[in-house]
């Protein structure tokens, strides 16, 4: 049996950590009758600042775009309303892009949430399970008339982010030290994130490419995926797209749909 009596200290201590409106918990004190307000504030500060820092580590381009002061104010709201639920901080902030989308003071930067989505996908790819990517050569053994039937297994690090804005160009310009040319934010972009070996790569997908890659990643055969891509973009070129995805390391293996 677990003793439950005398174990409610955490329930008393925790709520004020992320809520400045609450006073210092009654259960704590300073030594020799001293006050505990500034002492407890050390914990409030440690928690809040370290979690804001955690978001800044996941979203460096967003912070560079907004400036540190804006970012930290925005992150503080998010930390207080959505503290992490996992002790793995590199998993924190999956709901931050959605938060940015609704954040009043970020409305003048409608592409900011999608830049954040690319950064989140970048970190997911970075920590994803290691796997050898599918080589172009391994597809050459398949009879051309059966190519439409093949099904590809997505690489664990592969992610796709679609944006009605130039989120990828903005992301790249703010992850890179080099100054960039003026960006027309209104051009829609689709990003492919892969990590075939130990470096995360982010690429532009051509028109139809995101639909194609998403269909393949969800297990649709190549022929069906190409059909959907052609519907999305009439000039979709299947050969270039499949070669591009494989060269990027987007898949780990292939199978013939019928053979299974």
């Amino acid at each position: 049996m677990r003793p439950e009596a005398g174990l409610c200290f955490a329930a008393s201590f925790a709520p004020a950590l992320l809520d400045p409106a609450r006073g210092t918990p009654e259960v704590v004190t300073g030594p020799h009758g001293k006050g505990a307000s500034r002492r407890y504030d050390v914990y409030r500060n440690n928690v809040t600042v370290s979690l804001i820092d955690a978001l800044a580590a996941v979203y460096p381009a967003v912070q560079r775009i907004t400036g540190a002061e804006f970012f930290r104010a925005m992150a503080r709201f998010h930390v207080r309303s959505n503290p992490p639920t996992s002790p793995l901080l590199f998993e924190y902030g999956h709901s931050f892009p959605q938060f940015i989308e609704a954040y009043e003071h970020a409305q003048t930067m409608p592409w900011l949430a999608d830049v954040a989505r690319i950064e989140r996908a970048w970190l997911d790819g970075y920590h994803a399970r290691d796997a050898a990517p599918l080589s172009a050569a391994s597809l050459s053994s398949i009879a051309p008339e059966r190519l439409a039937e093949i099904v590809l297994t997505p690489h664990p690090a592969m992610r796709i982010v679609r944006s009605p804005f130039a989120a990828l160009t903005i992301f790249a310009a703010n992850r890179d030290e080099a100054p960039s040319a003026r960006i027309d934010a209104s051009i829609a972009e689709d990003a492919l994130i892969t990590r075939p070996d130990f470096e995360v790569a982010v690429r532009h997908l051509p028109p139809g490419g995101a639909v194609f890659a998403c269909c393949l990643a969800s297990g649709q055969p190549l022929g069906e995926a190409a059909g959907a891509a052609l519907e999305a973009a009439a000039d979709f070129d299947i050969a270039t797209n499949i070669a591009g995805l494989i060269a990027a390391g987007a898949f780990t293996s292939h199978a013939l749909g019928d053979a299974r």
Partner: peptide
């Protein structure tokens, strides 16, 4: 120390009272 309560992870090494009850819990 502790860092998680209910569903929240606080990312800090938080303190505990030193009592028979917490001793039994820590040992467990």
């Amino acid at each position: 120390a502790w860092s998680t309560h209910e569903t929240s992870f606080y990312n800090d090494l938080l303190p505990l009272p030193y009592t028979e009850a917490t001793l039994a819990c820590v040992c467990d």
